[in-house]
Design a protein around this nucleic acid. Structure first.
Length: 214
DNA sequence: CTCCCGATAT
DNA sequence: ATATCAGGAG
């Protein structure tokens, strides 16, 4: 059940009031390290990724340096992150391709980004939003849950939720919608134990309505 | 759909 | 013990 568009607007207005300039929590120092950090963050926590990327980016903050570092040493740097074998392989190959195809720069182009190994639509949307200021909404596990649970943007697939979000989010909220939703999902509308008593949009949410009656 | 996978919270 | 974490590829 989708909430009304008027309620959607109020939903964003409340989150924006609490956090006017929301920011992500992955550490990075340029578009390239942002891209790498997001690739590494698949099925892992930001805290865990940051722990590994601190030393890693000190050693390699460009594709050229990453290739020079090599897959074996990269793997050692990210061993504490899940899925580290695939990620190490992808980051090295991705870095080589950035040098070959884009003069070592991160392309401002969704198709070019998605063509890189380890980069899907979600990661491409994050880079386009954060590095280039485009009003994309990257649907990750948190946003998928928040969209469905609250009724803000219901959908059975991440594509459907992204579509619903882009259609239902007023233009004035689009640039920061991604961060408001992910932070809301991470700290309030959590997967296992949602903190409904602390929720600023509880009266707008269909999920709490159900649990109150139940 | 399954596989990749360690750290953390519950 | 197990669900979950800024997913993507085969």
């Amino acid at each position: 059940m989708a909430m009304t568009l008027k309620t959607v607007d109020e939903f964003y207005r409340r989150l924006s009031e609490r956090d006017p300039e929301p920011r992500g929590e992955l550490h990075f120092i340029n578009p390239y390290t942002l891209l790498v950090a997001v690739v590494l963050s698949a099925q892992a926590t930001d805290v865990g990724v940051n722990k590994a990327t601190g030393p890693l980016f000190a050693a390699a903050d460009t594709p050229e340096k990453m290739v020079a570092l090599g897959e074996a040493r990269l793997r050692d740097c990210i061993k504490t992150i899940g899925l580290y074998r695939n990620k190490a392989k992808n980051v090295i190959r991705l870095s080589e391709l950035l040098i070959e195809r884009h003069a070592g720069a991160v392309p401002r182009d969704r198709d070019a980004l998605v063509a890189l190994p380890g980069v899907g639509r979600k990661t491409a949307n994050v880079v386009l939003n954060i590095a280039f200021g485009e009003p994309t909404i990257a649907v990750d596990t948190h946003i998928f849950r928040v969209g469905n649970r609250t009724g803000l943007a219901p959908g059975k697939t991440v594509e459907a939720v992204e579509d619903a979000l882009l259609r239902r989010t007023p233009d004035r909220w689009k640039l920061h919608a991604h961060h408001w939703l992910i932070l809301h999902g991470r700290y309030i509308c959590k997967a296992r134990k949602p903190d409904c008593p602390a929720c600023p949009v509880i009266d707008l949410c269909q999920f709490k309505a159900k649990t109150l009656v139940a």
